[in-house]
């Protein structure tokens, strides 16, 4: 399922990486931040809470752990943790009822999405059986970067949302609401 997810997400213009442990994923994440640039914002989630201590021990310059509309607007990178992935479309799914999740995943140029590998589901119909709209009031589905073909049917990336979407699948990450 992971392979299909990766193929489809990359076909939609995303980048997908996978790590067995949170520690390796964090290392990659921090390296990506160097490449992508700061400022960056990170909207909360179980992964952040799990490694918060380590981060706070050595604060990363330019990385804000609380998200506002202003700092998200100025950020190069937004980091959020997703709840599910849909393999056959390469889609990330998140309960984005918390506004900071949407600000961080929409306003910056690059979106880094953390995903528990175990929360991949085969298709949309399966996903719909797992979510409860009464509880998850704002469900967000993201597949690749923001795009348009509104001028002469030519594809352009990064209209209102991110130009780049980097997905980091973490095998030992719990969380989400599978």
């Amino acid at each position: 399922m992971y392979e299909l997810f990766k193929t489809r997400a990359e076909a939609a213009g995303g980048l997908v990486h996978r790590f067995p442990t949170g520690a390796e994923a964090l290392e990659f994440l921090l390296k990506s931040l160097e490449v992508e640039g700061t400022p960056a914002v990170w909207a909360g989630g179980s992964f952040l809470e799990g490694c918060a201590e380590q981060l706070l021990g050595a604060p990363i310059p330019g990385l804000a752990l609380s998200v506002t509309r202003e700092n998200a607007k100025g950020a190069r990178v937004g980091i959020t943790q997703m709840d599910w992935g849909i393999a056959d479309t390469g889609t990330l799914v998140q309960d984005a009822s918390g506004v900071e999740q949407r600000l961080a995943s929409t306003l910056p140029w690059t979106h880094i999405a953390l995903l528990p590998t175990r929360n991949l589901v085969p298709d949309l119909a399966t996903l719909l059986t797992k979510v409860d709209p009464a509880r998850s009031r704002y469900l967000t589905f993201i597949t690749g970067p923001s795009r348009t073909a509104d001028i002469e049917r030519v594809l352009a990336i990064g209209v209102h949302g991110p130009e780049r979407v980097i997905v980091i699948c973490i095998d030992d990450l719990e969380g989400g609401r599978p």
């Binding site: 509309r69 506004v99 949309l124 704002y138 589905f141 795009r147």
Partner: peptide
């Protein structure tokens, strides 16, 4: 509509959520 498997974004909104 656009020969895509899914659009880049789908939002499912069920009732109001908090503003920032």
């Amino acid at each position: 509509a656009t020969s895509q498997l899914i659009t880049s974004y789908v939002s499912m909104i069920t009732g109001p959520v908090p503003n920032d």
